[in-house]
Amino acid sequence: MINIQHLKKNFGQNEVLKDISLTVNRGEVISIIGSSGSGKSTLLRCINLLETYHDGTITFEETDILKFPQGINHYRAQVGMIFQSFNLFNHLSVLQNCVIGQVKVLKRTKADAEALAIKTLETVGLKDFIQASVSTLSGGQKQRVAIARTLCMEPKVLLFDEPTSALDPEMVGEVLQVIKSLAKEHRTMIIVTHEMSFAKEVSDRVIFMDQGFICEEGKPEELFLNPKEPRTQAFLSRFIQ
């Protein structure tokens, strides 16, 4: 579904992605782990074209994403992104956060959009907060709204960039629960996370990134229990302590 070939990205002199090749199959859940600064966010942001890249190619359903016939915005609408810092639209209510994209981008009617938004908000457990103002929500609730907002666009792929890193510990569970249920629906997802037991549980494949390279990848059991690369071992040992 997504095919990344020899992707390179630098910020000035700083080479952040050095040679990334990765194929994501339909319905596959991939977790990306790795220490801070290894390029995980940049990789997701390149896939969603929030960053430009000048070397390598990314194709989505066989089409180069830079040459999407209906344009970049049309492509982006099919690839949902969930950010560490939620980035909810602060001037809109919970419901409107989930409606505005459907109406303005997908040109759905307000009634259709609201119906889907309400249904989606119910599935993430926010039935009672539909009319709430975003500023009244807890972090965990905000991130669930952000997930609902993305789901309402009915994207074909979901990208999560450390969805629980900005949350108080007691709220991590409720967000991971939502992501787990999405994994059960066999959605295509790429999840950058530091929650190792969660990654082990939901992913079909785990990727360990280090200094702009994919250092090791494999099935979760293999990578977590039997890491081959010394760097993977060193990284994981820090988490076991």
């Binding site: 969603n48 929030l50 915005n73 049309h74 982006r76 609408a77 099919q78 690839v79 949902g80 992104m81 950010f83 810092s85 980035n87 909810l88 639209f89 602060n90 001037h91 505005i100 994209g101 303005k104 981008v105 997908l106 952000a146 907002r149 993305t150 666009m153």
Partner: peptide, 24 residues
């Protein structure tokens, strides 16, 4: 992040500016 969230759900630069950034 406000602009990025708007762009990530497929809004054009103009839509992001008009519906998300300017009102705030």
């Amino acid at each position: 992040g406000q602009n990025e969230a708007a762009r990530s759900i497929g809004m054009s630069n103009f839509q992001a500016m008009f519906y998300i950034i300017l009102p705030q």
